[in-house]
């Protein structure tokens, strides 16, 4: 079972919710930090990292001995990552999306693949919680292949909790696609609601059931609740704006470990999600 925690707007509490849910459920859960541009779930889960692997993405390598400068490779590339000028083939690795199209269309078989470093993937654990995160190389702009790589490590037998990146573009899609449920974390502010709407529309297109956590639920206005009702989005948990929660967070301490009453609430949140997923699988 895969639960992806997303938000639209950044800083609403995705990591807080996802790490606390993982800690509340405890041993047997799997946690994937897919916010690879700035992974921070380890600060709260405090896993022991057991191994690290380098992640590369394929880019073309041209054998000029075989190349006839026919330009079929550059014609198919939507990102202009490969071009042919005066008997030279130029490759711009940072523009390449690793689709392999140039290799397929090359009539001479002159293109093979080599790798470009994207970042690293870390494997660890803490108290029976399996932990994996991706960390994008500084200067790299293409995160989806790394996110997909992190997700490929998911154990289908486990409950997998994904901490997704903010926004609604490719990296978020990569972190949500194929999930059984998307848990949206928002705050009741106009900004939070604006971006939540975009995220909700995205999830609709992906056909994944979703529900809401409203964090800092007693600030801002009440618009998000009216929106949730109109959209028939279940509000599965509300967390008030409390100083003690903020203090724990700022020191890297989890809510469920600091305040035992919250452990129950996060378990309940998970059970509500489980129920929605089960109901859906019986009706489909």
């Amino acid at each position: 079972m895969i639960i992806s925690v997303a938000s639209g707007k950044g800083g609403t509490g995705k990591t807080t919710i996802s790490t606390n849910m993982a800690l509340a459920l405890g041993s047997g859960v799997e946690f994937l930090d897919c916010d690879v541009e700035e992974p921070n779930a380890h600060l709260f889960l405090k896993p022991v990292i057991e191994r690290t692997e380098l992640v590369t993405t394929p880019i073309p390598l041209v054998d000029l001995e075989k190349c006839t400068y026919c330009r079929k490779c550059s014609a198919i590339c939507r990102f202009n990552a490969i071009t042919v000028v005066s008997h030279k083939v130029l490759i711009f690795p940072e523009l390449c999306h690793s689709c392999g199209g140039c290799m397929v269309v090359c009539p001479e078989g002159a293109i093979t693949e080599t790798g470009r470093e994207l970042g690293e993937i870390n494997f660890g654990a803490r108290n029976g919680i399996r932990f994996i995160n991706g960390r994008l190389r500084v200067g790299e702009s293409m995160s989806p292949p790394l996110i997909k790589r992190v997700r490929s490590e998911a154990d289908p037998e486990k409950v997998t909790i994904i901490d997704a990146p903010p926004g609604t573009s490719c990296p978020v899609i990569a972190a949500m696609n194929g999930a059984d449920f998307v848990l949206m974390v928002t705050e009741p502010t106009p900004f939070g609601l604006h971006d939540l709407k975009l995220a909700v529309e995205t999830v609709k297109l992906l056909g994944i059931p979703s529900g809401l956590v409203v964090n800092r639920s007693d600030i801002g206005d009440q618009e998000v609740f009216a929106y949730a009702e109109r959209e028939q989005l279940p509000v599965l948990l509300t967390i008030p704006f409390e100083r003690r929660i903020a203090e724990a967070y700022s020191q890297g301490r989890s809510i469920v470990e600091e305040f035992p009453e919250w452990k129950e609430r996060f378990c309940e949140l998970f059970h509500k999600i489980e129920t929605i997923i089960q109901k859906r699988s019986t009706t489909v």
């Binding site: 550059s74 939507r78 990102f79 202009n80 990552a81 071009t83 042919v84 000028v85 005066s86 130029l90 711009f92 523009l95």
Partner: peptide, 13 residues
């Protein structure tokens, strides 16, 4: 979408 300069450079060449 991307690489307009690369394309324009190829074109003028």
């Amino acid at each position: 979408f991307k690489g307009a300069g690369i394309q324009a450079a190829t074109m003028i060449s």
